[in-house]
Amino acid sequence: MNMKEKKIVGYIIIGFFLIYIISFFIRNENEKFTISLVNNNLLIKFPNKIFVKDYAIKDYEETNQSNINKIFEYKTILEKEYYQEVNEVFIRDISNYGIKENHAYFYTMFQEDNKNSSKKLKSLGFCIKKDFVLVQGSREKDSDFINKCH
């Protein structure tokens, strides 16, 4: 290999390395969360132990509209104060809350970070398809995800 070819190979390697680093930083934090179905229960796992202040499951498809302010609010299916530091949240007997297959929902939670005492809101769209949970992609449009659930 001559000097020119070595430079080109070097630039290509540096380019791939930069692309890898950039993709690492712009990755959506929600993609690190997983939701799975265990019998009639939902298991939400986090990449690290976090302090969950409260969580809710809301109906992604049904909204209530305030005519005065034109505000849309998603129908709350389940809401719970939690106040625990955990690696996962286990929601038992989801059918008791009316959660059904082929319908879009989203899980929201307020978490507190050790480094920053302010609360952070995290949200993740999901739907149940037979025996597994389909999770909304970080850049997926809401309407596309809802259609995929049906």
Score class of each variant (00 low, 15 high):
Asn87Gln: 08
Leu43Tyr: 06
Asn64Ile: 12
Ile77Glu: 13
Asp144Pro: 02
Tyr74Glu: 13
Lys45Asp: 10
Lys70Gln: 15
Gly10Gln: 08
Ile21Leu: 15
Arg139Phe: 05
Thr63Asp: 14
Ile8Asp: 05
Ile12Lys: 05
Ile12Asn: 06
Ser95His: 08
Met3Asp: 10
Glu101Leu: 01
Asn64Gln: 13
Phe145Glu: 02
Phe110Leu: 08
Lys119Thr: 09
Ile71His: 12
Ile13Lys: 13
Lys148Gly: 12
Asn147Asp: 15
Asp131Asn: 11
Phe33Ala: 03
Ile19Ala: 15
Asn40Lys: 03
Asn2Asp: 15
Asn48Pro: 02
Cys149Met: 08
Gln84Ala: 11
Thr76Arg: 06
Phe24Val: 00
Asn48Phe: 08
Asp54Thr: 01
Tyr105Pro: 00
Asn64Ala: 11
Leu42Cys: 04
Asn41Pro: 00
Gly10Leu: 14
Thr108Asp: 15
Lys53Trp: 10
Asn2Thr: 08
Ile22Gln: 03
Glu81His: 00
Lys7His: 05
Phe17Asn: 13
Tyr82Gln: 02
Asn28Ser: 10
Thr63Trp: 07
Val52Ala: 01
Val86Met: 01
Asn48Asp: 13
Phe51Ala: 00
Lys130Gln: 15
Ser23Pro: 00
Tyr82Met: 03
Ser117Met: 11
Ile71Glu: 15
Ser66Arg: 13
Ile35Ser: 06
Ser23Phe: 12
Leu18Val: 14
Arg92Leu: 10
Ile26Pro: 06
Phe24Arg: 03
Lys6His: 08
Leu37Asp: 08
Ser118Thr: 02
